[in-house]
Structure formats: C-alpha cells, structure tokens
C-alpha cells in the first residue's frame, strides 16, 4: 500500500468523524463530503473515487459505512478500516443515544404527542418518495415492475421476511446469469 506519506489512524478517525457529525440525511449526503476530503488530502487517486462509490453501493450494508471501510483499508489496511468506520459512526451513535435516553422520558408529554402526530404521516411519504425515484430510474426491463410489485406484496400482505425474498431472487438471478453465460459461449 503506497499512500503518500503514512496517514495516522487518529487523523483518519477525525476526518471521518467530521464527515459523520456534519452530514444530515444519510448515506448519499455523505458521499460529496468524503470525496472532498479525499481530494483535498490526496489520499486516494481521483480516478478511483467513482469505482469506490460504485462498489460500496453494490456491496451489502450502508453506503457511507462501506466507503469508510474501503477508504480506510486502502490507506492503512485493517486498522485504517476500523478507524475510519469508528469515525463515521461514533458521532451519530452518541447523538442518537443521547436523544433516545432523553426522549424515552418525554414520550407521554402532550407537546411531543402533538408534534409526532404531525410527523408520522410525513415519515411514510418520505419513505415512499425515494422508492418511486429508485423505481423510475432503475426499473428499465419489462420484468422489473412485476418483480417490484411481487416483492412488495410478499412482504406487506403475506408477511414474508425480506431476507428470504432477497435470497430467492439472488438464487434465481444467479442461475439465469450462469445459464446465459454458458449459452453465449456455445
């Protein structure tokens, strides 16, 4: 691993902690901040960044965490990956914990009840919007929409665990892809 000078683990932790502490709105909001930090410090060649984002997106887990693991590992190996991940997650972990501890004492407060009565339907809308956007940009083939609909019904109406559905789809997709490969070679 030939990093330009050796980045200290503490520095890695602090840079990712800053990104973690200041991005509101989840993983996608973190990408530009992480990219900016990487560019500014010349930690990772600029042309590698899109690859890192693409791979972090297709691996299981959360994008921001995956990018931290990837970048940390490229810079300092396993200890670097741990330092970067701790940095990216610790600030929100502590903040959420503080909120959870305070909020559990305020749940029956009439003001809190009123505020959350307004918030709850909004949360449902905020889950629906990214789903529709994902469907409109990602569902390009004819079978994509029926597959989305089938997954939706299986989980909501039939109560099947998403884990089983993902496993089944992955198995079928893998088998089809392997068959297509063999067919193409012949």
């Amino acid at each position: 691993m030939t990093a330009p000078g050796r980045v200290s683990l503490l520095r890695l932790f602090l840079v990712f902690a800053r990104v973690g502490a200041f991005t509101i709105g989840g993983g996608y909001a973190m990408i530009p901040l992480i990219e900016a930090e990487m560019k500014k410090r010349k930690w990772i060649p600029v042309e590698e960044l899109p690859d890192i984002v693409a791979l972090s997106q297709s691996a299981p887990g959360l994008l921001a965490v995956n990018i931290s693991i990837f970048a940390g590992y490229r810079l300092r190996g396993l200890p670097g990956a741990i330092a970067a991940t701790l940095g990216a997650t610790l600030p929100s972990f502590l903040m959420i914990l503080a909120i959870a501890m305070v909020f559990s004492g305020f749940k029956d407060n009439p003001w809190v009840i009123k505020a959350f009565r307004g918030v709850r339907p909004v949360v449902v809308a905020l889950i629906l919007v990214p789903m529709i956007k994902m469907a409109r940009s990602g569902n390009r083939s004819w079978w994509a929409w029926p597959l989305s609909a089938a997954a939706l019904i299986a989980v909501s109406v039939l109560g099947i665990s998403p884990v089983w559905i993902l496993l089944c789809v992955a198995t079928v997709a893998y088998t089809l892809a392997v068959m297509r490969e063999k067919g193409g070679r012949r």
């Binding site: 889950i127 989305s148 997954a151 998403p162 993902l166 992955a170 997709a173 893998y174």
Partner: peptide, 19 residues
C-alpha cells in the same frame, strides 16, 4: 446479473415498509 435481479426487488421491499 444478480444485481439486476436484486435492484427491482429492493424497490418492492421499500414500498412494503411504507405500506
């Protein structure tokens, strides 16, 4: 190929959470 199958499935899963 596997990812092409999983992406639309995930769309359905997110929809199920909202439902």
């Amino acid at each position: 190929g596997v990812m092409a199958g999983l992406r639309p499935t995930v769309v359905g899963l997110i929809g199920a959470a909202a439902v």
